[in-house]
Amino acid sequence: MQLQYFLTVAAALFCIGIYGLVTSRNVIRVLMSIELMLNAVNLNLMAFSNYLDPVGINGQVFAVFVISIAAAEAAVGLAIVLSIYRNRDTVDMEQFNLLKW
């Protein structure tokens, strides 16, 4: 097993997340794409922790922090989505133009 395999898989997952973030029109799917990207970053951190710093494991500590931040982000994001849905009665990203000049 090599470090490069894990990094390549994480890069692929990150690119899939970016594609979903840009192209999808449902807000919930955008949130899911953000979770995919955060997971890709976590996989990078864990791979570095195992192969470059196997005794200090600072990467695992960072991954735990990223997991907790992602949980907070999902909660606040879904609350914002619910609030917008209640006001605009849609989940279409193209119609969320409240802050657009």
Binding site: I28, L31, N39, A74, A75, L82, D89
Partner: peptide, 20 residues
Amino acid sequence: LVYVGAVNVLILFGIMLVNK
């Protein structure tokens, strides 16, 4: 625990609340 147990269930609840 956090992702499958909390975040995924939260997203499913969000889909159910925004079932348009």
